[in-house]
Design a protein around this nucleic acid. Structure first.
Length: 832
RNA sequence: GCGAAAGUGGCGGAACUGGCAGACGCGCUGGACUUAGGAUCCAGUCCCGCGAGGGGUGAGGGUUCAAAUCCCUCCUUUCGCACCA
């Protein structure tokens, strides 16, 4: 028995307190988790999404992400990979800042304290994190380079300051990127979003829309995540068509995917924000139009986007000319047209677009048919629009053409006349990165009245966040940094005159778009990263994190990578080759949060069951990718299981030790059943950990242990096969219960760390059994199991089973119509 | 509204390309060891039936020798999108 004895141990389990502390110290003292980054021959960069420290500590959901991901990494390590598994903190941003505001402690102080706390929590997971490479995005050493990268974007005209209607969260008092608006609400605080027209900094991600789309084909990612990115980019092929203002002669471009319906246009609609509205509205309609524009500005995003809302709008009194036939049509404004998509104006075809149909019906505008069903089926324009493709009618020379052909012909004709062209549109908008908040990386720009925007020179970086007392958001669309004269007032680097610093800070997603590059050497001073190391270690081989980042972080990081590739700073354009999401752990049916009061903290379970048990229980609960609702009622089972393994191995530890290390080839008398079980376990555990199906990997270990337990009870252990099996069990469990496995490994004679051992390989010969169980069905109903030699053929098998009473009584005197034989599986006898 | 995924014992969940439904665990029942046990070990545990046997994977239909698995309709849940022209 082990010399470790603990009174504090939860009865039945293993002495986890001593074991876990002992091995964590061992790993740390021996630098086992410090990867040798110079050796990249068999490198494996395994990354989990780093955490953002807010006031809330790590909860069970973080463990669910990090523990199993580490299990995968540890198995890869035993397979001989040089694994680099770093960890850091996304420590800028709203969660940290909001906590600081609430607690009244300056975010620099509270964040540092939270990071210290979280670091200790992370260490309890017992993961292979290389702590020598820890980083925090709020560290000047880090954000110096975030600013440096911003300047690269700026240099290449990829960072631009422009006025645009932007999303404003009245509660967080800052603008938000489109991606941070969920159903018209703030992603963080769920407050309804309003709109403001502000001059803001954008990164031109739209320039990469096609590349971001094309790159998806090369990625080993969950199909759903790829689909979400596709939808978010929202590529749409169509035509841009120029209508002409009747009086002003103004060109009014519209975007349509259905140029074949051009003859069915009975009016056009501008978004209320469209700049032409002012110009073309006739005096008699001015009052109504102004009221309508005002009204839609006041409406919240939610109200405006509501699809059940009745269509509203106003007539401008002006007319436009249809370029295909010169027809004179009314120009309306309506909020169902979005200013930010396409050209902010649409041609309305009420006969063939349901939205236009609803609008036309309400305002008594003409509904005209220009497409008929190709299959000559009937439809009723009085009941709704006919939106399918079909055959063109009432369309002059295009009449009779198929929609798809017709839309090309129509566009080509317009193109030849300079009245239109083919055009691709995207839903993706440029990435708004300005934030009117304190806790972020200051945008390194100086605004000079004479010289305009002047970038801070690289040697002046970082632009340090000033240590100001009042870091509250002002709420007026201005950053708190604007209240610090020492910060704001500078000399223009170009002309030397008085100038003002940009006071906005960058969106936190900018920080996290490149952290995986910095991890290799977070202290590097000659650049954002060491090119040699990046060349050796990137891209990321495995990235595990939550699905909630499907279109934000994961899109931004890809964009960064492509840009950096284009300007020659990295050698690859997709950062994450393989991505997997863990499911989310809910509590009482809903997402864990402090406000709901349903946060499950790991401390209690660590205290009572230990780290290995908690990690394994999280993996055993169910499918890793689906997650589930937290329920601790089963954790006893894992605790008991680890206790049983501990007792079983300890019981025979000295026996194994005298024979250690046991080789498979050295087994003398082989029990085929046990050997089959052992090798089957190796096969299952290997495959299941690889595909993150931890629950069945654990189940396989349990089956092996149940068998070994029986062998132990029956005293059939006078050969070394049993000992070999125990030795292998310890290896198989090492990635899942790392502390316990180290302890057992040393107990049976191992030295150093078990993670330098080779991962067990299944013996294919042992997997193939001599005797197998086959089943017999009569008319599809199960009638018996038979142990027969593997490889038995149909006739031989039928001979055996037909003589057996279990089957014989069903087929006796009946006519056999057919026999279906599946080798190695079953025989189905069909009778009449 | 549109799209995707899922629905299996009292519970969490297994079941490879259609081939023994319910692995593994929780819980429960009984037993052993015990002064005691919320420890440990053993046995049992989908439903009906004494039994032979029958029924059973959200509901209904279909394909097949054979369906949890494939197809159709419907219901429920989760997630994503939501006037994107």
């Amino acid at each position: 028995m082990s010399d470790i004895k603990s009174k504090e141990v939860s009865a039945g389990s293993h002495p986890f307190k001593e074991i876990e502390a002992k091995w964590r110290k061992f790993w740390e003292d021996n630098g086992h988790h410090t990867a040798d980054l110079n050796d990249s021959a068999k490198k494996l960069y395994s990354l989990v999404m780093f955490s953002y420290p807010s006031g809330e500590k790590l909860h069970i959901g973080h463990w669910y992400n990090y523990g199993p991901a580490d299990t995968w990494s540890r198995k890869k390590k035993m397979e001989g990979f040089n694994v680099f598994e770093p960890m850091g903190y996304d420590s800028f941003g709203l969660p940290a800042e909001n906590f600081a505001l609430k607690s009244g402690v300056h975010p620099a102080i509270s964040t540092a304290a939270n990071v210290d706390y979280i670091r200790e929590q992370l260490k309890q997971i017992g993961a292979m994190y290389d702590w020598s490479k820890e980083l925090a995005t709020s560290d000047p050493q880090y954000y110096r380079w975030t600013q440096w990268l911003f300047l690269k974007f700026y240099e290449h005209s990829m960072a631009v300051r422009k006025e645009a209607p932007v999303n404003w969260c009245p509660s967080c008092k800052t603008v938000l990127a489109n991606e941070q608006v969920i159903n018209g609400r703030c992603e963080r605080c769920e407050t309804e979003i309003t709109h403001k027209n502000l001059k803001q900094w954008f990164l031109r991600i739209t320039r990469y829309a096609d590349r971001l789309l094309a790159g998806l084909d090369r990625l080993d990612w969950p199909a759903k995540t790829i689909a979400m990115q596709r939808n978010w980019i929202g590529r749409s092929e169509g035509s841009e068509i120029f209508f002409t203002g009747e009086k002003s002669g103004e060109r009014i471009p519209v975007f349509t995917t259905r140029a074949d319906t051009l003859f069915g246009v009975t009016y056009i609609v501008l978004a209320p924000e469209h700049p032409l509205v002012e110009k073309i509205t006739v005096p008699e309609c001015r009052q109504a139009v102004i009221e309508y524009v005002e009204r839609s500005r006041r409406l919240s995003e939610i109200e405006r986007l509501s699809t059940v809302k009745e269509k509203t709008g106003a007539f401008t009194g002006s007319f436009a000319l249809n370029p295909i036939n010169g027809e004179r049509i009314q120009i309306w404004i309506a909020d169902y047209v979005l200013y930010s998509y396409g050209t902010g104006a649409v041609m309305a075809v009420p006969g063939h677009d349901q939205r236009d149909w609803e609008f036309a019906t309400k305002f008594n505008l003409e509904i005209r048919q220009v497409i008929e069903p190709s299959d000559d089926s009937s439809f009723d324009l009085a009941r709704g629009a006919f939106e399918d493709y079909g055959r063109m009618v009432n369309s002059r020379e295009f009449t009779g053409l198929d929609s798809r052909i017709g839309m090309n012909k129509v566009t080509e004709k317009l193109k030849s006349q300079g009245q239109g062209d083919f055009r691709v549109n995207y839903k993706l908008r440029d990435w708004l990165i300005s934030r009117q908040r304190y806790w972020g990386a200051p945008i390194p720009i100086i605004r000079c009245e004479k010289c305009g925007d002047v970038p801070v020179s690289e040697s002046e970086l970082p632009v340090l966040l000033p240590n100001i007392r009042n870091f509250h958001p002002t709420g007026e669309g201005e950053s708190p940094l604007a209240t610090s004269p020492e910060f704001v007032n500078v000399r223009c680097p170009r002309c030397g005159g008085g100038a003002r610093r940009e006071t906005e800070t960058m969106d936190t997603f900018v920080d996290s778009s490149w952290y995986f590059l910095r991890f290799l050497d977070p202290a590097y001073e000659k650049g954002p990263w060491d090119h040699d190391l990046v060349r050796k270690w990137l891209p990321i081989d495995m990235y595990i994190g939550g699905a909630e980042h499907a279109v934000m972080h994961l899109m931004y990081a890809r964009f960064f990578c492509m840009f950096l590739f284009d300007i020659g700073l990295v050698h690859f354009d997709e950062p994450f080759l393989k991505l997997r999401h863990q499911g989310s752990i809910t509590s009482k049916g809903s997402k864990m949060s402090k406000s709901r009061g349903n946060v499950i903290n790991p401390e209690h379970f660590l205290e009572r069951y230990g780290s290995d048990t908690l990690r394994m229980y999280l993996m055993f609960m169910g499918s890793y990718s689906l997650g589930g609702d937290w329920d601790d009622s089963g954790i006893n089972g894992i605790s008991r299981f680890l206790g049983r393994v501990y007792r079983l191995v300890s019981k025979y530890a000295s026996e194994i030790k005298t024979r250690f290390p046991l080789a498979y080839s050295a087994i003398d008398q082989m029990d085929a059943g046990l050997n089959h079980r052992l090798n089957l376990t190796i096969k299952h555990v290997s495959g299941d950990i690889e595909t993150l199906e931890f629950n069945t990997a654990i189940a396989a270990c349990m089956e092996l242990v149940n068998d070994l337990q029986k062998v132990s009870e029956s005293q059939r252990l006078n050969n070394n096969q049993f000992y070999y099996s125990l030795q292998t069990l310890v290896l198989l469990m090492a990635p899942m219960a790392p502390h316990l496995a180290e302890e057992l490994w040393s107990m049976i004679g191992g030295s150093g760390t078990i993670f330098s051992q080779a991962w067990p390989q299944a013996d294919p010969q042992a997997l193939a059994l001599n005797t197998i169980t086959m089943v017999v069905q009569v008319n599809g109903r199960l009638r018996g199991n038979f142990d027969v030699p593997a490889g038995i053929d149909e006739d031989a098998f039928f001979k055996i089973v037909s003589q057996d009473e279990r089957v014989g009584k069903f087929i006796e005197g009946r006519q056999i119509v057919k026999k279906v034989f599946v080798p190695g599986k079953l025989l189905n006898i069909v009778i009449r």
